[in-house]
């Protein structure tokens, strides 16, 4: 059974490329472009791994992350944060909020896929 990935990203072209890549790698991909909806989606139907952008409408990525970690259902959900900023503070903020991995845009496709695979497997074990 394919691992299910929830992709939270508001840039349509990035969503398109990531969906293409992940599906190619055998994942099942759901997409949310809004922070609040992403949070609800993840809580009601926790995926195997979550790819989370920081700059999102309504709720930003950090807030989504924090609330997911506060909830027992998603406390251990493997999460990869994506950000277009990449400064040290963002990295620290992501770690503090409980992200498992952190990647900066633009990224190498292979790195991203490897990271997601690792997260999804770790989460399974």
């Amino acid at each position: 059974m394919a691992k299910r990935i929830l992709l939270v990203e508001d840039e349509p072209h990035i969503v398109e490329s990531l969906t293409f890549l992940l599906e190619k790698s055998g994942f099942e991909v759901s997409v949310e472009i809004n922070g609040r909806q992403a949070l609800n989606h993840a809580l009601s139907a926790p995926p195997d791994a979550l790819i989370l952008d920081v700059m999102l409408p309504e709720l930003d990525g950090y807030e989504v992350l924090r609330q997911l970690r506060d909830d027992a259902r998603t406390a251990k959900l493997p999460i990869l944060m994506l950000t277009a900023k990449g400064q040290r503070e963002d990295r620290e903020m992501a770690a503090r909020c409980g992200a498992d991995r952190f990647m900066t845009k633009p990224f190498a496709n292979a790195d991203l896929i490897a990271a997601v695979k690792e997260l999804a497997n770790v989460g399974q074990d």
Binding site: E11, H13, I14, E16, S17, L18, F20, L21, M55, A84, K85, G86, Q87, T104, K105, P106, F107, A108, N109, A110
Partner: peptide, 20 residues
């Protein structure tokens, strides 16, 4: 910082698709 962010977003798509 904003310029960097704004530039990274299209760059991400460009890089990702060109790699594909």
């Amino acid at each position: 910082s904003q310029v960097s962010h704004e530039l990274r977003t299209p760059m991400t798509s460009i890089r990702s698709f060109s790699e594909i």
